[in-house]
């Protein structure tokens, strides 16, 4: 079991990255359609998009930390 440790941690990170991956995709897709609809608000939308990405990313980052701890 000890020899499998590394592999399990990698799989754990992979699983942790699925949700945020989909989430970031949704955030960016909405941001792009918002920018396309209102190009004059692009600056504000971009800032908000980065914020959304940052919050969504949190889970993936926790997974990354656990990968090192495990």
């Amino acid at each position: 079991m000890e020899e499998l440790k590394g592999a399990i941690a990698v799989m754990g990170y992979g699983l942790a990255a699925i949700g945020p991956g989909i989430g970031i995709g949704l955030v960016v897709a909405s941001a792009i359609s918002a920018m396309a609809r209102q190009p004059e608000a692009a600056g504000m939308v971009r800032t908000t998009m980065f914020l959304g990405i940052a919050f969504t990313e949190a889970l993936a980052l926790i997974g990354f930390v656990l990968f090192f701890i495990a």
Binding site: A54, E57, A58, L61, I62, F64, V65
Partner: peptide
């Protein structure tokens, strides 16, 4: 807890 952690880990990672 999560704010400082994710802020640090995002850059670090």
């Amino acid at each position: 807890l999560l704010r400082p952690l994710t802020l640090a880990v995002r850059l670090f990672a």
